[in-house]
Write a protein that binds this DNA or RNA. Structure first.
Lengths: 180, 180
DNA sequence: CCGAACATGTAACCTGTTACATGATTAC
DNA sequence: GTAATCATGTAACAGGTTACATGTTCGG
């Protein structure tokens, strides 16, 4: 993905924050954090995480010290430069406020183009999917660390707004069944 | 990026909708639509759009007929299969309701980890960026076709919610200046 | 001792990015 | 005629995906 002012990709920034703020201090734990994260975001594939960490080590942002005491694996921590780069990434206003690739936004104006039967079907399926996601988010909220909890809270607000949008679409759909 | 149930990437779906719903019926116009779109989403690079269209033609979803009358270029339209694939993509509930890679969400829990000076700075910059984007979105709303207008309306809601989030963060920040 | 979980990595592939190259048409 | 815009593409590269390969440690 494109590198922005902070010089980090979104994945690299996320990796740094996993190590520094969420205390996942081995490559494996970082990877598992992505895999088990309540959101899809990235698959947490080995082919993405390990190369990303290697790049960050080579760039001098991560310090990697092999664990000697029985355990295998390497302990990762951010260097001074790493912390600075992470903060730049966190604060980058252009990046932070861009819409990214929002799949809902892309489709927001397109449901109205469907014929009424298909549209009703789609809206029902979408509302159900959002509803299930909302239920999952609210029930798992307590088990999360502060960082992930904040993300979940944001997701709840987002999905609630999506649900509202879908209900508005349904209402408009009922008012004007088929615009042709 | 990953292909989902509809078999289309997000870019491919967006390309089909540009052709079918927004009447950008040459490769060049599709490309320009991405480039001049109020959102970043994709760069609309030639190296992405032309290959994507070629793939869609080869898959039998787009019909490409060279323009004979003076003009150069090819006229693009969706085949029967193309319309079906587009509708599947539009209605795919898993895709449509995923958070995608939301840069705001990724950072939502991280501003609180900054020291109070840096945090105040960051929040100010972010609120300004969101404010400017909101101003731009509201003033350009009238010039847009229905599809893009719906997207803009969604973006306005999203950015408004982001602004609210940032103001809440600022308030909490003021209440507890430095948590160490 | 054996299977599950821990741990690390590579190889082939796909798609998007930048940067470059090329030519046709139109407005002046 | 010439500059801007229209129009199409390719080449090198970056970074993410799946799938595979390999070895370690620990609980039973």
């Amino acid at each position: 993905m494109t590198r922005h002012s902070s010089g980090l990709t979104e994945l690299e920034g996320a990796v740094l924050s996993e190590i520094h703020h969420r205390l996942n201090r081995t490559a494996f734990k970082v990877r598992r954090a992505f895999q088990t994260s309540p959101s899809i975001e990235w698959s947490g594939s080995a082919g993405a995480v390990y190369p990303a960490i290697r790049r960050l080590v080579e760039a001098g942002l991560i310090e990697s010290t092999p664990i000697t005491t029985g355990k295998k694996g390497s302990h990762l921590s951010l260097t001074h430069d790493g912390v600075a780069a992470l903060e730049d990434w966190i604060c980058d206003p252009v990046r932070a406020t861009s819409v990214g690739v929002d799949p809902f936004r892309l489709r927001a104006g397109l449901w109205a183009t469907l014929d009424s039967a298909r549209r009703a079907d789609a809206l029902l399926g979408l509302k159900q999917a959002v509803g299930e996601e909302l239920a999952r988010l609210t029930t798992t909220l307590d088990d999360l660390d502060p960082v992930e909890r904040a993300r979940s809270r944001w997701s709840i607000q987002l999905q609630t707004m999506r649900l509202q949008w879908l209900e508005d679409q349904t209402a408009q759909s009922d008012a004007a069944p088929d615009s042709k």
